[in-house]
Design a protein around this nucleic acid. Structure first.
Lengths: 128, 128
DNA sequence: GTATATAAAATGCAAGCGCATCTAATGCAT
DNA sequence: ATGCATTAGATGCGCTTGCATTTTATATAC
């Protein structure tokens, strides 16, 4: 790796960070303002909505939201408190839990999806 | 915007998020483990090291680190406490402060830079 | 069967974050 | 010069985060 490669690498990372920050901050702001949910909540809702039977293992959600295991556990607890999902015992492996989308959760996802897409369309295009 | 465009947009954002998460988490882990600093601290150190006279306005640092004004203010306070930089009155505009890199800060940056670059080389390449 | 290692999820805790607000300095219009 | 809107930065507050640990269930070895 010569100096030019290194400069290229740093520039590539910098561009990625800026792009991510712009889109993520816009998403957070608009999802919060219009629908009262954050980016992580939306990602979890979307993952559930796209899962078979609108349910999945807690661990699968952890991967989706790019959070630590503990943060994901609390995210699920929060969303259950708000009525977006329910926790159910997982018969196949009784250490785990099954996270199930509620009707309320499905509605909220459908409401928020257009906002999500329009923010992506605007911010991803404007940042090249 | 038709359905295909929308799917493309979502995929593009998803790829960006994954790429960002992989690189950022690796950077955070390795910078913390080897040098006792986080990504934000490194970004601030690098911005200062590359500034004229290794100093700049607090606001300039705020832009660099992609944090809120308050978070950046506390980041500067933390880094001052750790001896990486000093706050000085800004004579040109006495509302503001001038952030000045210390020798200690310069050293830490030089130590951490190779780690930073090697993580980028590894993770950016491996994620395509 | 019993012990041991591993895995899933929950939780105590300290630290960092953003929002709203506050203080102090500046700029601008009258 | 005086008053009002604006800007830089600091801070109180509540929430979210990650780390480390605990609890409960599973799998493996003996």
């Amino acid at each position: 790796m010569d100096a030019g490669d290194e400069g290229q690498l740093v520039k590539e990372w910098h561009d990625l960070v800026v792009r991510h920050a712009v889109v993520h901050q816009s998403l957070e702001r608009e999802l919060q303002a219009r629908h009262g949910i954050g980016v992580s909540e939306f990602e979890a809702l979307e993952a559930l909505a796209c899962s078979e039977n609108t349910q999945c293992r807690a661990q699968d959600l952890t991967d989706v939201v790019h959070l630590s295991q503990s943060a994901a556990s609390r995210l699920i607890a929060r969303m259950e408190r708000e009525g977006f999902l329910e926790r159910a015992l997982c018969e196949a492996d009784r250490r785990g839990i099954l996270v199930v989308l509620t009707d309320e959760g499905r509605e909220r996802h459908l409401e928020a999806q257009p906002t999500h897409r329009s923010v992506l369309a605007r911010t991803l295009r404007e940042t090249g």
